[in-house]
Amino acid sequence: MSHAPLLKRLVVICVGMFAFAFALVPLYDVFCDVTGLNGKPSLEQAKQSTSVNEAREIDVSFTTHAQSGAPFEVQSHEYSVVVKPGAMREVLFRAKNTSNEDKVMQAVPSVSPGKAAKYLHKIACFCFDQQPLKAGEEVEFKLLFYVDTQLPEDVEELTLSYTVFDISRQIVASN
């Protein structure tokens, strides 16, 4: 009896499962989008809001965290704002490069509670792009967002957190 056909099939399964491990990476992002797992919100510009729910008020607070060694100070002007679902809101962030070298900053957003992540829509955000900041430079960043009217009823407050990374070295490495 020849073993070749079965052997081939088994090897194909192995190779397929190895590829599947890597396919899990994009699949995971889809999974996060659908379930709001880990509060990983979309990094793409959202569509405009179409309606406003006047009856509801949501507390949205902002927090930032510069990862250890990232020489940035980023802070929102307001600690928190109260918004009506569907209504557009602008929040300004002050960002500063505290080092004496030119740096590139990447802000990674995260929303809590995780189930609210897909209901927070950003129209404009400094996190969409890598932000080059010259040594000591201070800039204002704009965040334009709204909370979806579909936000689950039990969510009364949510937090948008930015973790700020220094990606200057990765940029140098990839160029």
């Binding site: 499962m17 190895f18 599947f20 491990a21 490495a173």
Partner: peptide, 22 residues
Amino acid sequence: LIAVMPVLAGAVTMVLTDKYFA
């Protein structure tokens, strides 16, 4: 084994590239 050992191989490969290949 043939279903999951390749997934482990994928995981360690990703660790390797994250650590050494940016």
